[in-house]
Design a protein around this nucleic acid. Structure first.
Lengths: 126, 126
DNA sequence: GTCGATATACAGATGGTCGATATATAAAGA
DNA sequence: TCTTTATATATCGACCATCTGTATATCGAC
């Protein structure tokens, strides 16, 4: 699952929202770093709906425009939970290694040219 | 940055490795959930090298076969650090929302149909 | 009339997946 | 011994999913 998709599900995890709302929410969540294009969003919504991760919630008419609300399904919630866990584990390993790399200095820049006996810190099998 | 790319950089964050080693390391890191195909790996290595995030480290000949070692460049380390931070923030928001969703129950399944005044918990602008 | 909110559509780029191929050595078997 | 098969390693190409970029349409407000 790519970042935009993850963020869309995260946006909907807070409650049903319409397309445009998701865009603004995702921008907020990511502190402005991820700004979804309309094309990205609606294609993703279709896809996610086809996968059963989200569903139509209701439609409202505001100022003559239809607002279609989407919500996370239980399946979508489960999926987001799983993805989150996965990402959390990955960031943990990366953080550990990056820290070791800084601490280790030269040894991690190839100057030790060694056997990397215990490359370790992988977190092994979960 | 997609998951395979992230994991490749993470693998190299532990020290220089050759292609096949990266594949096995990534499988380890992800507890078997991500198994890179050779095609994916070498294409990614080329790409990352072109971007300056990794570099050739050295070549060894083991059992007649050449092993080409790659290492993370400083730029690559910085990039991985940034990506990790980004992911960490995203997972934090997702975790918070998922927890609220569980706690809130019905209100988050569309049954409250409300205005979502403070959809919040987004972490705002960093 | 143009702007903002909202939705749809489509072409193009990027990156990943899958599968096939190649090489060298070691191990297994005829 | 000669051949086949397996293992470690690297390369290539066709295809596909997802994201980006951009254009377009609608309706009400300014």
């Amino acid at each position: 699952m790519q970042e935009p998709t993850f963020l869309i599900l995260t946006a909907l995890a807070a409650g049903p929202q319409h397309g445009y709302g998701v865009i603004t929410d995702v921008r907020e969540i990511s502190a402005g770093r991820v700004v979804l294009r309309a094309g990205t969003l609606y294609a993703a919504l279709d896809r996610l709906q086809a996968e059963g991760l989200i569903a139509d919630d209701r439609e409202e008419v505001v100022d003559g425009r239809v607002r279609r609300y989407y919500r996370l399904t239980d399946s979508g919630g489960a999926r987001l939970t799983a993805e989150t866990e996965r990402l959390r584990r990955h960031t943990e390993v990366a953080t550990t290694r990056l820290r070791a790399r800084l601490a280790g200095g030269a040894a991690f820049h190839g100057l030790a040219g060694g056997a990397l006996s215990g490359r370790g810190l992988a977190g092994g099998a979960a």
